[in-house]
Design a protein around this nucleic acid. Structure first.
Length: 107
DNA sequence: TCACTGACGGGGC
DNA sequence: CGCCCCGCCAGTG
């Protein structure tokens, strides 16, 4: 467990309910812009972290639920988001631009 | 040590 | 619009 991972998890937990963020935004915030893949890789291990990580609030830059297969069920991620008021159509977050949450260092 | 993979992103064609 | 290539970084065999 790297410090990098912890930073990813800590940041993901800060994502407000009903909002989403992209891997790239998270990576950029951590100062490792361009390493969005690594952020995604970190999320792969998020299920084993405590407290729980709201991984369903993290999508790719297009607002697509690319990580849904890593939840128990392929529809789990979508259900979790819709349960928070986020509308999903064809695995894509609607109004992604509006719901997109940009992490800030001052917060 | 090298090669490959991946819940990504950007750019070229 | 779809496809491909490359950079990115950590984990794995």
């Amino acid at each position: 467990m790297n410090d990098f991972y912890k930073r990813v998890y800590a940041l993901v937990r800060k994502i407000p309910k009903g909002r989403v963020a992209s891997y790239g935004d998270i990576a950029e915030h951590l100062g490792t812009k361009g390493s969005a893949r690594t952020v995604g890789y970190a999320m792969n291990n998020a299920h084993a972290v405590s407290p729980p990580i709201p991984a369903h609030r993290v999508v790719n830059r297009n607002g697509l639920l690319t990580g849904k297969h890593h939840f128990g069920s392929p529809t789990m991620m979508q259900q979790l988001l819709e349960n928070e008021g986020v509308k999903i159509i064809d695995d894509q977050v609607q109004d992604f631009e509006k719901l997109r949450w940009i992490p800030r260092k001052r917060n």
